[in-house]
Amino acid sequence: MLSLPAFRQEVRHEFDRILQYWQTYSPDRQDGFYGRVDVRNQPDPSASRSMVLIARILWTFSLAYEVTRNPVHRKLADRAFAYLRSRFVDPKYGGVYWSVRADGFPEVTKKQLYAQGFALYGLSEYYRTTKQPEGLAEAQKLFRVMVDKAYDSKNGGFIEAFNQDWSDTDDYILSKGPLRKSMNTHLHLIEPITNLYRVWPDAEVKKHTKALLEEVFMEHIIDPETARMRLFFTEDWQARSPEISYGHDIEASWLLYETAEILDDKPLLQKTKDLSLRMATATLEGLNPDGALTYEYNPETGHKNEERSWWVLSEQMVGYFNAYQLSGKQHFLEKSLKSWEFIQKYLLDKERGEWYLRTDAAHHASIDADKITAWKCPYHNARACFEIERRIGRG
């Protein structure tokens, strides 16, 4: 088995390799960052630019500068911040657009809470690293409009999406049909609101951080019997889907514990620790002999999505390591190491850089899938490498 110092060294090398790829191939010479780069690293200058992708680039290079103090990383974080601020922030209604055209003009102007959350994640990390007051100011404005326009004061949590002017819509691209709340959006709301609380310990930010953990996740999203997350909900939190998303479950197992750590509430921290370990243990049902989690499973139909996804492998590497740290159980460490072994063997594009999007169950990589898209970004894999290095470094 790979030693912890060797594990740390290998993921740090991969962290640097990921950053090198993105600093080489993602910046558009004209403005901002490309919205699409193919598997041969050729950009599509005409592709739309997604808020989710730009926010994840902002988060990644902000984190990178904190770690490396490389001025190139600072320059790219500044570039991403300027691009987000000038092209994606809605000056009339507040919040951020879902996407802009390649020329920077608004394209999809709806207010998707998933995109608001990632913008907040990037902005708060940018301020955390650079201490630029403009970064915090933009994060504060975004948080306030999210709470003012999208918070459900009656049932808790946040409504999934709105029209540009924050009026009601029935277009929920991350939810099923007319359902107004989802696990995925709330997972990527607790993540940035927690990050904002790190840099701005405001009472209202703390209130929403704690409410998302205790009321939304512990009372509604996580099934108390199975320790798995339900995926889609009505406005009053009636679950409406049977699917199991193993990748999101293992991701949430460590992100929710991180939230409890930052809140620094000892009883809540112990409660979240117990839950985190239950969640990590529950995912073992979906773990394949090759060390990769099944992407998704529907117990009602028996349908199983057998793809091995780059982002799921990233999150399970961290989630199982977190479970090892919390429990001291060696088998969790072995599963984290086996995740890394799978990544190295099947997902790394050692010739052209970055990772393949997925493999099938027979480990055939998606050699024709784009390297950069609205959803293929540097956040899951760079963060996973950083987290493992950090956790081994602190013992």
Rank of each mutant, 00 (worst) to 15 (best):
L123S: 13
S276C: 05
Y97T: 12
D290K: 05
D368I: 04
P133Y: 06
K210Y: 01
Y121L: 11
A137M: 08
M229E: 03
E296W: 00
M146C: 12
D78K: 08
P71I: 09
G395I: 14
R69M: 15
I221D: 00
H248F: 12
E107K: 09
L313C: 06
R228L: 02
G291R: 02
A150R: 09
E235C: 07
E300S: 03
L174F: 14
D171K: 02
Y83K: 13
D31G: 05
Y97K: 10
N155W: 15
R40D: 11
D78G: 11
N298W: 00
H220W: 01
K376T: 10
P289V: 01
R180G: 08
R29G: 15
Y295N: 00
Y121G: 04
S327W: 10
Y126L: 01
S99D: 09
H220T: 01
E204T: 15
E219N: 03
L256R: 12
G286T: 13
E125K: 10
Y93L: 14
P27F: 03
I221P: 00
D31H: 08
A137K: 04
G353T: 00
Y356Q: 02
R390D: 06
L256S: 13
T373W: 04
E160Q: 02
Y93T: 15
P178T: 06
D236P: 10
H220C: 04
Y295L: 00
S314V: 06
S86I: 09
D165I: 01
W310G: 05
W355H: 03
G247I: 15
A292F: 02
L84F: 08
I250S: 15
E315Y: 02
K154T: 14
R240D: 15
T272E: 13
S245F: 14
L268K: 09
H186Y: 13
Y324A: 08
D274W: 13
L76V: 12
D274A: 15
S86W: 06
D264T: 13
S276K: 00
F162Q: 00
D274I: 13
V216P: 02
I159D: 07
L2P: 00
L58G: 10
L255E: 09
T68D: 12
R394A: 14
N70E: 15
L189S: 11
